[in-house]
Each structure stands twice: as C-alpha cells, then as structure tokens.
Amino acid sequence: MGKYAAGTYVAVSKTESEIKELLRRRGATRTAFAEEAGRAVVFFELRDRRVQFTMPLPRADEKRFTQDRRGNRRTTAAATSAREQACRERWRALLLTIKAKFVSIESEVETFEESFLAHLVVPGGKTVGQHALPAVAEAYRTGTMPPLLPAGEGPSRG
C-alpha cells in the first residue's frame, strides 16, 4: 500500500505556507509553527478556539533511512535525502488532513468543534485528545464502558 504524497517534491516550507494560507482563508486569527527533534507542532486560533496538531517527524537514525532495502548502510547524503522525503510526505498528509476537516465542516457533515475536537486546547495546555484518549484506553482495558445512549425516559411512544 502506497503512502499519501509518496515521491512528492514539495518542500516542507512550501507546505507550511500552504497550511498557513488555508488557515488564514478560513479565518484563523493566529498561527504558529514549531519544530524540534522528532515532532512538529501547528497551532492556530479560529472561532474562539485554540487548535494544536502535534505531528511526529521521522528521526534521522531510523533504520529505514540509514539502511537500504538489502540492509546495506546508506551514505550520509542518501540517508538525509530519504528522511527529508519522509518529512515532505508527512507534511503533505497534514495539509490534506486539515483541508479535509474544513471540507467536512463546510459540507455540514460535522461542526467545527466535532471536526477538531481531539486537537482543541483546553486550559492547562493539553488537547482534548491528550485528556480523553487515556480514559478511553482504560475503559476498553477494564471493560467498563459508559452506556451508548445517555440515561433518559426511553423511546417516545408518540
């Protein structure tokens, strides 16, 4: 199975600019991009909400970059080139993800909050996903699940 944007030549800086322009066109009042070893973070504020995407980036020491398919050691230049390609692909996938969320919102498939829920930043600086995902994993681990439907008066017999 192929990866999205496999073989793309679009520079990371160009994709970052495209994301920033997409967010600006959709009304984002603030944007920020940060990168450190192993991850990139995109922040924006829109509709009185702060949104954060934290995207893992491939590490230069990963075997898929340092060795070819036969297991032979790659040159430093070849390893760097392979990693840069993986980063370009990852950034293109993030752009597509954000675009798709806006398509979903504009098509009224879901609301802004529903679409970006896991990425909404709450007081304390964590995202909803960072808070909720461990609780969901624990619920599945223990088998203690909340009811699918909230408690109520039952079906209407109208």
Rank of each mutant, 00 (worst) to 15 (best):
L22F: 10
F112C: 06
Q85R: 06
S107Q: 09
M1F: 06
T142E: 09
L57Q: 01
A118E: 14
F33H: 07
R24G: 13
S17M: 13
T31G: 04
S81K: 07
T97W: 01
T29C: 11
Q52Y: 08
I105M: 13
P155Q: 05
K14R: 14
S13C: 00
E18F: 05
E16D: 08
V41P: 00
M55W: 02
G154M: 10
F116N: 05
L149M: 15
S13I: 04
F102A: 09
T54K: 01
L22H: 08
A100C: 11
P147D: 04
G152H: 07
E89A: 07
L22E: 07
R30Q: 09
C87W: 00
S115A: 15
V122N: 08
A5P: 00
A82M: 00
A132R: 11
E113W: 05
E84D: 15
R39L: 05
G125P: 09
E108F: 15
S107V: 13
F65T: 04
R30H: 12
S81E: 14
L94D: 02
E18R: 13
T8F: 05
A86H: 01
T29E: 11
S115Q: 11
E108Y: 13
R157F: 03
K20I: 12
K14G: 00
P58V: 02
A118W: 09
P146K: 11
R26H: 13
E18W: 13
R90F: 01
E106Q: 11
L95M: 02
T66V: 15
S81Y: 03
Q52F: 09
A34C: 07
G125I: 08
R83F: 04
V51Y: 03
E153V: 15
Y9Q: 12
R25A: 15
P155M: 03
E35C: 01
S115P: 06
D68H: 02
E108P: 03
R49I: 04
E45C: 08
E36I: 01
A139F: 09
A60W: 03
I105G: 00
T80I: 01
V41S: 02
Q52C: 13
R26A: 15
A137S: 13
V109D: 04
R50H: 10
P134A: 10
T142S: 13
G143S: 03
R73G: 04
T142A: 05
A60V: 08
E35D: 01
V121A: 08
R88V: 01
L57A: 02
L95H: 13
V121Q: 14
T80A: 08
Y9F: 11
A93I: 07
L148P: 07
T8E: 03
P58N: 05
L96D: 09
M1A: 12
F112T: 10
T144Y: 00
E106C: 01
E62P: 03
I19V: 14
S115R: 06
M1H: 11
T75A: 09
E110M: 15
L133S: 14
L96P: 00
R24T: 13
A100V: 10
K20W: 06
L149N: 07
R141Y: 07
K14D: 14
S13D: 14
K20V: 12
M55I: 14
I105L: 10
G158L: 08
V136P: 08
M145R: 05
R39Y: 08
